[in-house]
Design a protein around this nucleic acid. Structure first.
Length: 591
RNA sequence: GGCCCCGUGGUGUAGCGGUCUAACAUGCCUCCCUGUCACGGAGGAGAUCGGCGGUUCGAAUCCGCUCGGGGUCGCCA
């Protein structure tokens, strides 16, 4: 048979009519009419119809043997389809290949699930036969989308003068942050590497090295429990820049996003992306990653109820708490109020006050406890119209914020206020530098310990560390945190002060981060950067619900790769070589 | 570790105390069919309902435990 170059199936158009071509691919579908046989041949570029006419007896006989997913090579001319038989659903629908010869390159067993459609299939089964799953149109599209996004990022950053530099995956373990994956060192018995959770320190050292503008599309490893948007190994777009302040980093990142969305999806992301301080985000939306596809802003009502007789509000305010509420521009029934109350309770609120705004005034079980003045104030603050409902929480500021944040989200969902097609990016800036750990009560870094405090708050470092704001920022899309970054510390003394704010002694700091402090002593430029989860971004761009749908070979919730059955029991010989011994060699039961 | 959801021929579903010796679609096998495109038509094979135990005269259907999968909270500096 001929050896002309391979033609991608999906590329054939009417313009190629008359040319002889060779296509290679999988049998996607067969329609055997008895005489004529039609076979759709698929490769990753698309589908083309091949006609087997009894005139070409040899080819026709082979065509009759073909089964789904058989790998074939077809040779023949591209011909225009007879008038009226074109398929307008297919890009290649105006033509077909008139098979003069066909090779069966490999026969296929019937697949365990339909490869030629995108219907729902048990995910375990899909993962076990991932190579078949990836043949399906949706997955092939997702992987190619991912490639195009990564390429758009690289093109953009290259144009902006960034250099992609690889950093080590096997690194020193640091106890902060997520649990590390450990890798024992054969040459250093008893010593371990950790798989990098992020290239953070290396990229800062690249700035000290004068690389100026660095980026990397990099695999990161975190040994934590899995979620729809969390895998043990995931990919970050990581970047760092020297001689910059917040605006410079935000500008590059948002233009990069705009470029990617334009290039890949043809969608315009308006820039500059709006910004919100962390304090405002909590006050107005109750969360640090607000979904701005809908309104329902939270309002501060404390001053209105400053002198209230209503015991619940009075007690909350007396204890230093706040009263905040939000107006729901709809009549909400008792059942829905119950659901909202449940949402508020889940975040620690004791309850949810509510008032129905009617033509004649307010109606609520608690109206009688309020003065005319208070109710007038409520009306003025919320601009409630007849038919609206106003809900409120009285509690400590953080509880009120969280509870109303959840109420806001639940109300938007149940009332259908979310515009699913909208893309609402927002920067959340001025995060706190430190936070108090919920379980241990210790002061920990809110972002990471290399984040610079805001200059005007430096004086508070020793006295009121929790009030210090950081030069840190998050990028949020539709209520999902895409990534975060900060302007870093580049001064060894400042770095020491932040370490000591975290309870580290000078010796601790020198022992664990001496290399960084040392580097800063040799002329470190001011620098800052950003990183975001590429898997999540691709997931959102693809309209998928989990990042597993945009990863070729993902792991399941137990962090297993079910196709190759990893992880596998440790080989005693390997353990011996590493100087390791299992304390409790309990092995999971085989499947 | 907690909570929630799911588990019926290869695949996707229906059935939710007796008429289920389990239905439908698709896939698979055989035959017919020369313009189909989720081709069409005729016929056939294929599941004891994840597993174990219990309730009941009777269980795919109810209950308990268990295994497997997923979601989520904790966790993810």
């Amino acid at each position: 048979m001929s050896r002309t170059p391979r033609t991608p199936c999906g590329a054939l158009r009417i313009a190629q009519a008359g040319q002889s071509v060779d296509v290679y691919g999988w049998v996607h579908r067969r329609r055997d009419l008895g005489g004529l046989i039609f076979i759709d041949v698929r490769d990753r570029s698309g589908i083309v119809q091949v006609k087997f006419d009894p005139v070409h007896a040899q080819a026709h006989a082979t065509g009759g043997e073909l089964r789904l997913e058989t790998v074939i090579h077809v040779h023949g001319p591209v011909v225009q389809r007879p008038a009226g038989t074109e398929n307008k659903e297919l890009p290649t629908g105006a033509i077909e290949i008139d098979a003069q010869a066909v090779d069966i390159l490999n026969r296929a067993q019937p697949p365990p699930f339909a490869v030629n459609e995108d219907g729902v299939v048990d995910e375990q089964l899909r993962l076990r036969y991932r190579y078949l799953d990836l043949r399906r149109q949706r997955m092939a599209r997702n992987l190619q989308l991912r490639h195009r996004i990564a390429k758009a990022i690289r093109d953009f950053l290259d144009d902006e003068g960034f250099v992609e530099i690889e950093t080590p995956v096997l690194i020193r373990s640091t106890p902060e942050g997520a649990r590390d994956y450990l890798v024992p060192s054969r040459l250093n018995p008893g010593h371990v590497y950790a798989l990098a959770q992020s290239p953070q320190l290396y990229k800062q050292l690249l700035m000290v090295a004068g690389m100026d503008r660095y980026f990397q599309i990099v695999r990161c490893y975190r040994d934590e429990d899995q979620r729809a948007d969390r895998q043990p190994e995931f990919t970050q777009l990581d970047l760092e820049m020297s001689f910059v302040a917040e605006d410079d980093v935000l500008d590059v990142v948002e233009r990069c996003f705009a470029h990617v969305w334009k290039q890949v999806l043809g969608v315009v992301v308006p820039t500059p992306i709006r910004r919100l301080t962390h304090v405002d985000a909590l006050l107005r939306y109750g969360v640090d990653k607000p979904d701005l596809r809908y309104g329902l802003e939270i309002q501060e009502l404390s001053s209105i109820f400053a002198g209230t007789e209503f015991k619940i509000f009075r007690q909350a305010l007396g204890a230093g708490g706040v009263v905040r509420g939000l107006r729901i521009p709809r009549t909400v029934g008792g059942k829905e109020i119950d659901a909202l109350t449940e949402a508020a309770r889940a975040d620690g609120a004791k309850g949810l006050a509510f008032w129905h705004r009617e033509a004649q005034g307010w109606r609520s079980p608690i109206t009688k406890f309020f003065t005319e003045r208070e109710l007038a104030g409520l009306e003025q603050a919320t601009h409630a119209q007849p038919g609206d409902v106003v809900v409120a929480v009285a509690d400590r500021p953080e509880v009120a914020a969280a509870a109303l944040g959840s109420v806001r989200k639940a109300a938007a969902r149940s009332l259908g206020l979310i515009d699913e097609g909208a893309l609402e990016f927002v920067w959340v800036t001025e995060f706190p530098l430190f936070e108090r750990s919920k379980e241990t009560g210790e002061v920990t870094a809110a972002h990471h310990p290399f984040t610079s405090p805001r200059p005007e708050d430096i004086a508070l470092l020793a006295s009121e560390p929790l009030r210090v704001r950081a030069r840190a920022y998050d990028l949020v899309l539709n209520g999902t945190e895409l990534g975060s970054g900060s302007i870093r510390i580049h001064d060894p003394e400042m770095q020491q002060r932040v370490f000591s704010g975290l309870g580290m002694t000078r010796d601790d700091a020198e022992r664990r981060f001496g290399f960084l402090l040392n580097a800063f002593r040799y002329g470190a430029p001011p620098h800052g950067g950003f990183a975001y989860g590429l898997d999540r971004v691709v997931m959102l761009a693809a309209g998928e619900q989990t990042i597993r749908e945009v990863i070729a070979f993902p792991k399941n919730q137990q962090a297993e790769e079910v196709m190759t059955d990893a992880p596998a029991p440790a080989d005693p010989k390997q353990l011996r070589e590493l100087g390791l011994e299992l304390v409790r060699p309990t092995l999971k039961q085989g499947r």
